[in-house]
Write a protein that binds this DNA or RNA. Structure first.
Lengths: 229, 229
DNA sequence: CGCTGTCTTGAAGCGTTTCAACACAAGTGG
DNA sequence: CCACTTGTGTTGAAACGCTTCAAGACAGCG
């Protein structure tokens, strides 16, 4: 058992596999087998896991830490696609014939990341239908999320997108939320600029709907007002 | 064999199954089995296949025709998610636990659509890993498409998005493209308004980069100019 | 403590939408 | 087959929302 810089605990061997949701149904000897195919690496903060035009030959599963997946537009802007948390995976392009990544994956914190070669993973899927089903469900969930966000970003005003995000993130009954990333990234995720995001948040605060506690902690005072923007 | 209003041919029974890409590896008795679980319906133009808040209990596969899948934003705007062509499927939410649709699916032309109950489909996936793999690949491909378009819509200017779309649609060597939908829908797909789309297309024409032949046929005269906007 | 990067704030500018009015195309019924 | 109807496409002028840029405040981290 190892402790890395981010104070998260990492188990080697079998437990790595068990922690990953898509492998949750495995038992006994199966775990042994799967474990042999998986390789876990530890990365410092700010490490590039893969970049565009690199051959996509592995599937990556985040075990600990956070990884940002983003794209660079022609005009050089960074557009955040999503933040991977433990259990999330990336590199799904390696599952299809198009063999090149077209986005970046970069660690935000020190991270432990499992990787499986495409060929090995293909065999696992055939051998253990339960894994394939888990992956399928995860894909369906993500497909829905992305489609939802895509339409949102295009159709709704910036103010509304931000309000919606706050409501989504706000845990029920708690009314206090911690932003999962800094505001520069959040702005990119919401399809706006840090400048506009800052302006909107402060205007919400002026109206008394929220209170900005620290840079990453926000208190919601008026859920209804935010919902009705 | 039946001919419907759109002059497309529909085979009943086994052939319906064979036409669907995700079932392409099936043979002989397997086709028999799968065919029993699939029900094919014919719909007129403008029929709603499913709508939000309806329980999602079936997976739909388009056999013939076109189906538009869209969402309605709070402010009532229709945002096109995608157009389903023969072989494409919808209702993937029925694969995950969240049991409600949150978008609309409506036929654009007279269509033949296969449906499979969620429970039956689940069994098929477990029984025939090849089907699961096909679905997985299709999901990965779509996930990538949607993510790409989502970032595009947010980061790039309207002009550039439209130019990119034209280039994407333009068949290599042919330089003539037929729009897959009318301009109202296309505008929604590209995250803009019919007004703006019209303006941009006509400005492209004024510069000599394209020629608007009919409402749905466009000739590309200068690929490089469009690519370098 | 001082450096570096992030966050904030104002003023100016630009792209895009909106609205209304008209042209046009497609589909319907006499 | 033509006139009618309905919906889609076009065009201009005005208004709006958002980004941009620059400059300063602040926070995090060595």
């Amino acid at each position: 058992m190892i402790k890395n810089e981010s104070n998260q605990v990492c188990h080697h061997g079998h437990h790595c596999v068990l922690q990953v949701p898509i492998f949750r149904e495995l038992e006994g000897a199966q775990i042994e087998e799967v474990s042999k195919l998986i390789h876990t690496d530890h990365y410092d903060r700010g490490t590039m896991i893969f970049r565009p035009n690199q051959p996509a030959e592995k599937l990556y599963v985040v075990n600990e830490g956070q990884v940002k997946v983003y794209r660079l537009s022609d005009n050089g802007k960074e557009q955040l696609i999503r933040i991977l948390l433990p259990g999330d995976f990336a590199g799904e392009l390696s599952l299809v014939s198009v063999g090149k990544h077209d986005h970046y994956a970069e660690t935000l914190t020190p991270s432990a990341i499992c990787s499986i070669a495409k060929s090995d993973f293909d065999q696992l899927l055939v051998r253990y239908p339960a894994i394939a089903m888990n992956v399928l469900h995860e894909f369906a969930r993500r497909l829905n999320d992305v489609e939802k966000q895509a339409t949102n970003n295009v159709v709704e005003r910036t103010e509304k997108r931000i309000a919606k995000f706050l409501l989504d993130q706000c845990p029920p009954e708690k009314k206090v939320l911690t932003l999962p990333m800094n505001k520069k990234l959040l702005a990119s995720y919401l399809g706006t600029t840090p400048d506009s995001l800052s302006r909107v948040l402060h205007s919400f605060e002026e109206q008394g709907w929220i209170s900005l506690k620290t840079n990453k902690i926000i208190m919601i005072n008026n859920l209804d007002a935010l919902a009705n923007i």
